[in-house]
């Protein structure tokens, strides 16, 4: 498999980025939701936020690389039978996910750096504060962070449902492409395809 995308297939870089970030994003949402309910004496009271911030910053790096990669690579075309409005909606949803991710990461950064403190990333490096001193910055950024995170999760659910709809109802190769299983459409045969399908049809 090529590293770069082609007009009808994702390269392995895009696929790895997608599947590295997807569980991290959902995991960060779950961690963020859970860690706020911890009692003061819980060992995770400190570890939870530290992990959340560290992974979040690394995710920001991945996102920036991903957007750059998207910019310098072709995007595989939608499956031929996809209605125009659907591929347009998909493109808008993808764009919204990227924008939300960026906004959530920025707002999270603005919470923790509101007082000028840097964000430590696994004790490996730290990201310095920049914008600070906006009145009640941490509260405003916190509200933005929370509301946008829920919006993102709604889009994630939509995104996943759309992928499953393509796979099981439209029986096209949309989901297979991001799994690196090639562009061969799902036939009427049983759904699990053997490894042969790694060779692609063009």
């Amino acid at each position: 498999m090529s590293a770069r995308n082609s007009d009808n297939q994702y390269g392995w870089v895009a696929i790895v980025l997608h599947w590295l970030m997807a569980p991290a994003i959902i995991g960060l949402f779950a961690l963020g939701w859970w860690m706020r309910q911890l009692s003061y004496y819980d060992p995770w009271y400190r570890q939870g936020p530290e992990l959340h911030k560290s992974v979040g910053i690394l995710l920001l790096g991945l996102l920036l690389f991903r957007l750059l990669w998207k910019l310098i690579n072709p995007s595989p075309a939608a499956e031929p039978k996809t209605p125009r409005w659907q591929s347009l909606a998909a493109r808008m949803a993808h764009g919204a996910i990227y924008l939300l991710l960026l906004a959530i990461m920025c707002s999270g950064y603005l919470i923790s750096t509101a007082d000028g403190r840097a964000i430590e990333v696994f004790g490996w490096f730290s990201l310095a504060a920049t914008i600070q001193g906006i009145p009640n910055q941490e509260d405003i950024a916190g509200q933005v962070h929370e509301v946008l995170a829920w919006c993102l999760m709604a889009l994630v659910v939509l995104h996943a449902l759309a992928a499953l709809k393509h796979h099981f109802i439209d029986r096209d190769a949309t989901l297979r492409k991001i799994l690196g299983l090639g562009a061969k459409p799902v036939s009427d045969k049983p759904l699990s395809q053997p490894q042969e399908s790694l060779t692609t049809t063009k």
Partner: peptide, 15 residues
């Protein structure tokens, strides 16, 4: 809302 304990994350929690 003007609470200030010199730590933004703590202030957010206290508010």
């Amino acid at each position: 809302t003007s609470l200030n304990s010199n730590h933004a994350e703590r202030d957010k929690h206290l508010r």
